[in-house]
């Protein structure tokens, strides 16, 4: 892959970003713009929508029509935009708290409808912006500001949720495996239907420090060791599968896209009206 000129996709006067030094969110945001470039999207016809939290700030740095919405609701806003004008390309940026907790219902139903929106979940396993409360993807047993005795909640595998709910393209990678992440997002954008890409990343400030996981480098090393390509993961022992997680393309299937279905419905009922009228 040639290194594209990604400057044109950034509002460079809004940089530097607000994220902590060493944060993975910049890497994921960079992966998104490279994927937009690789997929050949028209910058004028692309809308980037986010919710609340650290991930929610990403669209502010991106030079498209961008919308920073309420907590958890990005997909619902995006659904309205896409229905109203299906010619627009919709990218939704969410986090593990935003997308899997408060906005979980919208995620399930966007998957079910198979509406052509590409969702990238910045999964750093913690509520970073509010200073380190446990999220649905915080590992069981971890410490958080609201889990001072260790988290008793069961960790959510959001990619599994997306697959079960009917997303037709699901991929997972990490801020360490950035080339793979770019390719997954690119193919998710090209996919005609709902695509969900879980971008695993680290929050050394709120999660790593509390749990003695080291700085950004150590946490990215951990991503490297613990996220295994799907095929290699299948060959692991049962005990290893308990610890290690899959990365790569997890699901890809064809199913009629929601706004296409609605446009067909319009055609059908208008034709019926003419016939009856």
């Amino acid at each position: 892959m040639a290194n594209p000129d990604i400057n044109k996709y950034y509002r460079r006067n809004k940089l530097p970003h607000i994220w902590c030094p060493g944060c993975g969110h910049g890497i994921i945001t960079g992966a998104i713009v490279r994927a937009i470039d690789q997929a050949g999207l028209d910058q004028d016809k692309t809308v980037v929508i986010s919710g609340i939290g650290c991930s929610g700030r990403a669209p502010g740095y991106l030079k498209f029509d961008t919308l920073h919405t309420t907590h958890g609701r990005a997909l619902a806003f995006a659904t309205g935009v896409k229905m109203a004008n299906p010619e627009l390309n919709l990218i939704v940026i969410t986090g593990d708290g935003d997308g899997a907790a408060i906005g979980g219902n919208h995620l399930i139903h966007a998957c079910r409808r198979n509406i052509n929106i590409t969702t990238v979940m910045y999964n750093n396993s913690i509520y970073g912006m509010t200073s380190g409360q446990f999220s649905p993807t915080t590992p069981t047993g971890s410490l958080a500001t609201t889990a001072p005795y260790g988290n008793i909640d069961t960790q959510f595998d959001v990619s599994n949720l997306a697959m079960a709910a009917g997303a037709t393209y699901v991929g997972r990678s990490t801020s360490y495996h950035v080339r793979e992440l770019i390719d997954l997002i690119t193919n998710g954008i090209k996919h005609q239907g709902f695509s969900f890409i879980e971008a695993v990343t680290h929050c050394h400030t709120q999660f790593g420090r509390k749990n003695d996981l080291g700085g950004p480098m150590e946490m990215m090393e951990w991503q490297k060791e613990n996220y295994i390509p799907v095929k290699a993961w299948a060959k692991l022992s049962a005990a290893e599968k308990e610890v290690k997680k899959t990365r790569g393309l997890l699901k890809e299937e064809e199913r009629e896209e929601y706004t296409d279905k609605y446009l067909a419905l319009i055609k059908q009922v208008q034709a019926g009206e003419e016939k009856n009228g």
């Binding site: 609701r73 619902a76 806003f77 659904t79 309205g80 109203a84 004008n85 609605y262 419905l265």
Partner: peptide, 29 residues
């Protein structure tokens, strides 16, 4: 709405319905 080329969507909840309505407006409808 489909008879006039407009769009209808039944959302998953009231919050989503308000959000999608605003989304439709931002897209120009």
């Amino acid at each position: 709405l489909p008879l006039v080329g407009g769009k209808f969507i039944q959302m998953e909840d009231e919050l989503g319905a308000m959000a999608a309505t605003i989304g439709g407006s931002l897209a120009g409808l």
